[in-house]
Structures are given as C-alpha cells and as structure tokens.
C-alpha cells in the first residue's frame, strides 16, 4: 500500500492541533477558567511544528505534492475553510450573547471562542479519518 508522506504529515498536523485545543478546553474546565500560562507556547509550538513539518515534507517528497493536494484534497480544504468560517460566526454570536446577558465573563468567553479557530484543522482531520483523504 502506497503512503503519501506529504498528505500523512498534513493529517497528523491537523490531528495534533485539534487534540491540543481539546486538551486546552479540558484544562480550562478543570481549572475553572484558569490556565497555565505556558499553554500558549504549547499551542503555538504545535501549530508551528505542523507547518514546518509540512513544508519539509513537501520539499523532500516533491513528487508526492500533486497527489497530496489533488482535486479532492483541495475541495475538502475549501470546505474546511467554509466550515471554520461558519463555526467562528456561530461561536462568536453565541458567546457575545452570553457576555451581554452577564452569563459569562468576557475573558472566559474569549478562551472558549478561540478553539473555533481550529475548525478547518478539525474538519480536515475528520475527513482523513473518514477515509476521504490520506
């Protein structure tokens, strides 16, 4: 079975960032809204590491780029951005309402809104796990 390294690293990056955000949310819930300040560095580090890994894989395995980013992958990528857009819109409106109704503090709302930014990564990770892409 052939393995597309570029696509696999893309998927692993998406899964990693999604899991880190999930862990962040769990830590927030456990810590009653308080966070260890190093979380930002972990999150940023994972994101940067994923980008660097994808760039390196694309440089090393140039002959796999076309297959990794074929029309289905590009189609899914566009869908992931649309998903991310609507997820951000929905979460922003929801948490804005909660802050205006004094149900939630603005800083807490901000922390809970930020995971919406990983919508595209989560969408692509799920697509890969469903077998739609490598």
């Amino acid at each position: 079975m052939s393995v597309n390294i570029v696509a696999r690293i893309r998927t692993l990056s998406n899964i990693a960032i999604t899991l880190v955000i999930a862990a962040l949310l769990f830590a927030l819930w456990l810590g009653d809204g308080r966070l260890w300040d190093k979380w930002v560095w972990i999150l940023g580090g994972v994101a940067v590491a994923g980008i660097v890994a994808q760039c390196l894989a694309s440089l090393i395995f140039r002959n796999q780029i076309a297959a990794a980013w074929d029309e289905q992958a590009r189609h899914l990528n566009r869908q992931s951005y649309a998903f991310g857009y609507w997820l951000v819109m929905a979460t922003f409106l929801t948490f804005f309402a909660l802050t205006q109704l004094d149900i939630m503090r603005p800083d807490t709302a901000f922390f809970f809104m930020s995971p919406a930014l990983i919508g595209p990564s989560a969408y692509m990770a799920v697509a890969a796990l469903r077998g739609l892409t490598d």
Binding site: S2, N4, A7, A66, A67, A68, D70, E71, Q72, A73, G131, L132, T133, D134
Partner: peptide
C-alpha cells in the same frame, strides 16, 4: 490508476 492520473488512491 491513481499514479497514472496523478491523484491519491483515496480519490
């Protein structure tokens, strides 16, 4: 076939 048309096997 995927290799011949330059797409992934999943496609």
């Amino acid at each position: 076939l995927a290799e011949r048309v330059n797409v992934s096997r999943k496609t």
